[in-house]
Design a protein around this nucleic acid. Structure first.
Lengths: 213, 213
DNA sequence: GCGCCCTTTGAACAACGTTCAAAACATATC
DNA sequence: GATATGTTTTGAACGTTGTTCAAAGGGCGC
């Protein structure tokens, strides 16, 4: 269907196919960034890039496909942000805290675009997008590597990664929807640090000046 | 505006105003339960109760108002479920685990309706619905009372309630969207127990037969 | 009976996602 | 250069949505 440049092909405008895909994805991302999920409409998206809606249908697909592309980009950006936050010469505990900090920092910097990853739920019959599981797996592998020195058992570590990941997700979700402020004035980063610290070290090690180990 | 029965008022059908509100709310809840947020439309809702859409606009308001009423009911049901799950003669630790279990059980029994509470985000300018903060506060107060024997400091306890609440929310959210199964095969209840146990007792008390208090 | 007020509704409006069929264009072949 | 081929682009249309307008319908006090 969408083979590039074999026979009588050729874009009329100034964009080839890949450029057009990037153009659509970035424009959609900006719409979501400014006005959230509700602000992303097919006609609006088409008009902001100066094309007719049908051009997007032909090159990308329907609105679901557009959101998928935005979400794929978001997960890749998140992975890069987390990767650059792990300093190799820090203690495992500090690296875990840095990871949580970087995650919540990413969400705080781009709440609407991040929310789209979770707000946009796919049809309940489709099994799962391959790229989504893969992108998620890359990121959770990163977390697992950071937690490995502290939780040697692989099964326990996998459960810990899932539990902490879900906890961070809940913190970020409630924070972006302003439902966390109803409960406590602390920042989600402080709460994440509390959560990670108590999960990894227990309730007793609150003040670190008792023992320095 | 909506004063009841002073002068020439009187419902034509077989429902007075409060009955009509309950009728609309329950019908909307059932639509969400069967087909999720996308299944709740004004015209469909009106047709399932045998009224014209305008009757709902006059009595309840627009679709946002309808969802608010469904969400208020959901939070009240959740509060009741949690309250009945706290056994008075259990240890504080067991009561905390029972609370987490009841929360995730409630979500698992009614995932679509529960999701509506978080999927439906209100306009970013409105401060916050009063009843929402109040309903949330009632429930978190319940959690705080259960945690009180284990975390005596009020500040620390408030942070712990918020963090654990967010963690449970994330677990439930990822579970209902089937994003948790990508990470681990364990049930969200098992992960919640792991999370709560490690948060309250630390990583060392994994096997309780070492010390018995 | 009349008049008031609330309830209920049919019709209409604007916007939406999506599809159809035709026009516009770039390239390959003659 | 002319023609055919296949892709890109689009104008117009369809069906549906949330919401509003103005009118119809009916209970209650006078």
């Amino acid at each position: 269907m969408a083979r590039a440049g074999k026979r009588g092909t050729g874009p009329r405008g100034e964009h080839n196919r890949d450029e057009f895909l990037a153009l659509v994805t970035k424009a959609a991302e900006n719409l979501v960034r400014q006005e959230g999920l509700r602000g992303l409409g097919m006609r609006r998206l088409a008009s902001t890039i100066g094309y007719a809606p049908n051009s997007i249908y032909n090159a990308v697909g329907d609105l679901d496909a557009v959101m998928m592309r935005v979400n794929a980009r978001t997960l890749a950006r998140l992975h890069a942000a987390l990767e650059s936050a792990v300093l190799p010469d820090a203690t495992p505990h500090d690296r875990a805290l840095a990871l949580a900090d970087a995650y919540l920092g990413f969400v705080a910097a781009d709440p609407q675009v991040w929310s789209l990853v979770f707000e946009h739920q796919i049809a309940p019959d489709s099994p799962f997008p391959d790229w989504y599981a893969e992108a998620l797996g890359q990121t959770t592998d990163l977390v697992a590597r950071v937690l490995a020195p502290m939780i040697p058992d692989p099964d326990e570590r996998r459960q810990a990664v899932a539990a902490l990941w879900a906890a961070l997700h809940g913190l970020a979700s409630l924070a972006t929807s302003r439902k966390l402020l109803v409960l406590t004035p602390e920042s989600p980063r402080d709460l994440a640090r509390l959560l990670v610290r108590r999960f990894l070290e227990g309730p007793d090690r609150g003040r670190p000046e008792i023992e320095s180990a």
